[in-house]
């Protein structure tokens, strides 16, 4: 199940990313956001393995981001803020997960959407705490006790995100080969069989769900510290849709897919969303349809096909 080695593509990706970020300074921001979203999408991938799709994972991104925004006045350092963001998302994920892990397919997807939209509207309406649609500004935190000026801060955040992405991607790969990770496709194929093996499918899904919430919370925390501004829009359905979109775009085949998908997505978005602000969702929807109907293994699948064919050549 471990499949092909990912060491080379990972190293290449990291080198390419750092090289591009060094040559075009504005890319540091884009890539940090892409990595943060990639972490959230890694969580979506765990659920996709079990054949489940959540239309509401922006909820956990927003929980992570708002945790940073709320905690920032009292907690000053990234190394404390990130664990807080993850912790908050984990707790919310566990509470919601205890409920949604009982459901599959339609209910699973839609209940997640419902929870995220409730959270969105609460963020919007509870103005006294959240400042509504104005959102909350986040003062740049210190990193490991050191205060950085803007450019160095961006570099350190990018490096930190990159390290987290590589580390957690590696961990996710190990997880997917473990009994728990291997039980996920079993939920997709034949859930009752797990029950007849004495294993609670619900609990297996719950573990992945909480992990996915934690990953999304981490991504949200990074987003808050990179954009330095959080708004309810983080929890809006379009954002959840983006995460699902990236997961499908990247392809469910390997843990690199989410990051590859996220990087492509964010790069295209910089141009496309500016050129067609009112047609952005439409473009995403059309591409999503295209991938589902014609290239169901996503970008990573295309990469695999290309490299496999090349390797097969004499």
């Amino acid at each position: 199940m471990m499949g092909r080695s990912l060491t080379l593509p990972t190293l290449l990706g990291v080198a390419l990313l750092i090289g591009l970020a060094a040559s075009a300074p504005w890319l540091k921001f884009v890539f940090t956001i892409a990595l943060a979203k990639g972490l959230a999408v890694l969580g979506i991938l765990l659920l996709l393995r079990a054949g489940q799709v959540s239309f509401g994972h922006a909820l956990y991104v927003a929980v992570g981001a708002y945790t940073v925004a709320f905690a920032r006045p009292t907690v000053g350092d990234v190394l404390l803020l990130l664990p807080l963001a993850v912790g908050a998302a984990t707790i919310v994920g566990l509470l919601v997960g205890l409920f949604v892990a009982r459901y599959r397919d339609i209910f699973f997807g839609m209940l997640n959407l419902a929870f995220s939209m409730v959270f969105y509207s609460l963020l919007e309406k509870l103005y006294a705490y959240t400042r509504g649609t104005d959102g909350i500004r986040v003062i740049p935190p210190t990193i490991a006790g050191l205060a950085f000026e803007r450019v160095s801060y961006e570099w350190v955040m990018l490096g930190l995100s990159l390290a987290l992405a590589v580390g957690l991607g590696f961990l996710a790969r190990i997880f997917l080969a473990s009994p728990l990770g291997q039980a996920l496709p079993a939920i997709k194929a034949r859930e009752t069989r797990l029950e007849f093996a004495g294993i609670s499918a619900k609990r297996v899904l719950l573990v992945s769900y909480v992990a996915s919430a934690a990953l999304a919370g981490l991504g949200g925390g990074i987003i808050a510290m990179t954009t330095l501004h959080v708004t309810p829009l983080l929890a809006y359905w379009t954002h959840s849709g983006e995460l699902v979109f990236i997961a499908i775009l990247g392809g469910g085949g390997a843990v690199l897919g989410p990051f590859l998908g996220a990087a492509v997505f964010e790069l295209v978005r910089v141009y496309a969303a500016a050129a067609f602000p009112d047609a952005w969702q439409m473009i995403l929807g059309a591409v999503l349809l295209g991938i589902i109907l014609f290239a169901s293994r996503g970008l990573w699948g295309i990469y695999e096909d290309l490299t496999t064919r090349r390797a097969a050549r004499p």
Partner: peptide, 19 residues
């Protein structure tokens, strides 16, 4: 078969390979 073996002998490992 290994999933069933694991189910019987120790399933709740997140970071140890199934096989």
């Amino acid at each position: 078969v290994a999933l069933k073996v694991a189910a019987h002998r120790g399933f709740w490992h997140a970071f140890r390979p199934l096989l």
